[in-house]
Amino acid sequence: MNAPDATPQVAPARRADVRELACTLGRAFFDDPVAMWMIPDPGRRAKALPITFGAMARHHYLPGGGLDVASDGLHIAAAALWSPPGGWRTTRGQDLRMIPSFLRAVGTQFSRARQADELMKENHPEEPHWYLGVLGSDPTFRGAGYGRALMDSRLAHCDAEAAPAYLESSKPDNIPYYERFGFVVTGELALPDGGPTLWQMWRAPR
């Protein structure tokens, strides 16, 4: 599939979009340091990531109203998973619905996933904000403006609400990308067992 020459179309995701956007995010995060640390085997990782993102999108982000997709009119090229102010914590019911998918996806590496999740929760800002949990573009479409379109759309919403935004970057190369949108690094989180570093980034409203 070649990246088409099309203007990105941003829209809220529908439940019918979850399967495709999960596959898009699975390809986007295949070489992500956290994904590689959590699921070292490439074959298993390729299967596990769409399952994981699908569960997160279906049970947490879609009900929260922060699930956005960017498409070329035919394919979902990129997706962003946002939690609204006060809504970044998963509920017990959401956890119970997601855990079977997580166990099926990561198997014996589930303890690593839980460690990472607990570390991020312990260090999460308390001030109300929009939280960007996941942003990813299919490698075929990368560099064509789909991620930027998603960021511009949701950050305009944040600014209209005078709400800050927060994320954790798992790649140092992505820090300058987020800085262009007004995010600044506020801290670093080192995952256990020799895991990679996450960079905490905060954006004040404009």
Rank of each mutant, 00 (worst) to 15 (best):
R15L: 08
A55P: 10
K47Y: 14
G43V: 08
P128W: 09
G187W: 03
G66H: 11
G87Q: 05
P85S: 03
V106H: 10
G195H: 08
R114W: 05
A55V: 10
L135W: 06
P42H: 10
G43T: 13
P164Q: 05
S83Y: 02
S137Y: 07
A48C: 00
R45D: 08
C23N: 12
A116D: 12
A190I: 09
L21Y: 08
R142D: 06
G43P: 00
L67P: 04
H157L: 15
R92I: 13
P125I: 02
A163P: 02
N2Q: 15
V34K: 06
L191P: 10
A156C: 10
P125W: 04
A6P: 15
K121W: 11
A46W: 11
I76R: 03
R97I: 02
L150I: 02
H157K: 15
Q9G: 10
P12N: 11
H75Y: 10
G73W: 00
S153A: 13
W88P: 03
A55I: 10
M98C: 10
R206G: 12
P85N: 01
F30G: 00
G147A: 06
R89D: 11
P192S: 00
M151K: 09
M201F: 01
R142S: 09
L167T: 02
A149L: 02
D72P: 04
K171D: 11
A162F: 02
G136N: 05
T52I: 12
R97H: 03
F181A: 04
G133H: 11
R206C: 07
K171H: 08
H59A: 10
T108C: 02
T186C: 05
R203I: 01
W202Y: 09
A6T: 15
